[in-house]
Simulated scan of single mutants.
Amino acid sequence: MASSTVTTQATQVVLPGKVDSSGLQVRTSELPAPGAGQVVLRMDATGVSFAEQQMRRGKYYDQPPFPFVPGYDVVGTVTAVGPGVDGALAGRRFAAVTKIGGWASSLVLEAADLVPVPDGVDPAAAETVVVNGITAWQMLHRAAKVPEGGTIVVLGANGGVGSTLVQLARHAGIRVIGTASLQHHDSVRELGAIPVNYRDPDMYQRIREIAPEGVHAVFDHVGGAGLAESWRLLRRGGTLVSYGTAATKNEDGNSRLPVLKSFGRLLVWNLLPNGKSATFYNFWAGKRRLADFRARLAEDLTQVLRLLAEGVLTAQIAGRFPLSEAGAALALAESRTVLGKVVIVAQPHP
């Protein structure tokens, strides 16, 4: 049974090709009725992740061909349900990871991909911890399994994933050393981390001075030449978690090559007899077993949203932009000046 507010049209932001952030296009498209097992979700908030920044340059590992609607995750309200979906979902707020398609006023999703957002949580706040929160939670608790009392390094502690990771680690009783530009040191310190200037040419030496015996884990989204320095920071039994290749995002060439290079280095390091381990975190790992993947994602996101609702996590919103200004939102996210995540919200009603 569908709700009475079925959406027939949607405003979408389109990435037409390798363009500047000002080259995004806005279009109105017919939205199909939800099929079996599907819902229509009205977007309340979406956001700009590092993935969209790479997609704009054609550099995301497995992005679809241009043109397409970007938008890695979304928080919204169900306005219609398809056959086989409980009508009680209509009017309730959910979060979902979409990979693409989130930059739209409404979209059709599989009901099985929805995760409930706790009552009273602002949708923009919830948006900051969807893909970022799942990523941070899984890297910390599933990939690295850092013990209470351990010490970790978070590169880019002011970023969307980094700021969430710092808070989750501190809540788990883990000491955090976080790299950031000087302008964000006070904020990183307030999150609970020991800040280190990432522009300091002796940054890794500064980290060694803070943790002379090495650290239990390094979370590195930068990749490139610095990956070896991150590996050297580990103590015996420590884990390097690589989850991006930001160092090469502006370079031309094959989008898969930097990832494959990093993956190869991590494999070689894992063969060394020094007790350390290295892994490349892939958000979509295990999706071939879809039911298990969905269950794990829902479990982890539910934990993060609960912590947000309880006030353990503080949403780091770097800016809010209406959907029509998605280009400006993307430009701000790419400026490397922000703390937290840039959020895109629904257009205000006239």
Rank of each mutant, 00 (worst) to 15 (best):
N132I: 06
G253H: 02
W103Q: 09
V215F: 09
T314V: 14
G91H: 06
S21C: 02
T7P: 01
S4T: 15
R288D: 15
G101R: 07
E310Q: 15
S106M: 02
V115L: 08
R56M: 13
N197I: 02
P65F: 03
G156W: 04
E299A: 15
P118C: 09
A126Q: 08
R265D: 11
V196T: 08
D20K: 13
P258G: 07
A328D: 15
S242Q: 09
T248P: 00
A90Y: 02
G223P: 03
E334H: 01
A169F: 04
I134S: 01
V342W: 03
Q167E: 03
M203R: 15
V146A: 04
A228Q: 12
N158E: 13
D292C: 06
R170P: 01
A111Q: 10
F263Y: 13
L234I: 04
T314W: 01
T11S: 11
P67A: 05
S277T: 14
G224F: 07
L260W: 13
P212D: 09
V196K: 10
R265M: 11
Q25R: 13
G319E: 10
G156K: 06
A10G: 02
P34F: 03
D220I: 08
S187C: 01
A126N: 10
R142P: 00
P34E: 00
F280T: 03
K287P: 00
V304Y: 12
Q303P: 01
A33Y: 00
M43L: 05
Y60H: 09
L168P: 06
E30Q: 10
L313Q: 10
R56W: 00
P116A: 14
A2D: 13
A136G: 05
V154F: 04
R320E: 15
R294F: 06
S230Y: 03
I174R: 03
E52F: 05
A295Q: 15
T135N: 11
G101S: 08
A10M: 12
V39H: 01
V115M: 12
A124N: 09
V222M: 08
R294Q: 15
V146E: 08
Q12T: 14
A225K: 13
Q25H: 01
R294S: 09
V75H: 06
P116G: 10
L89N: 02
F219G: 07
G23Q: 01
G87R: 13
S335V: 10
T7W: 00
I152W: 04
T135V: 06
T5D: 14
A104V: 10
G35P: 00
T179V: 05
F283C: 12
L305P: 09
V129F: 12
R288H: 14
R57M: 07
F94R: 05
A346H: 09
D252F: 06
A285S: 15
H171L: 12
V343Q: 07
A328Q: 15
Q53R: 05
G214D: 11
E190H: 13
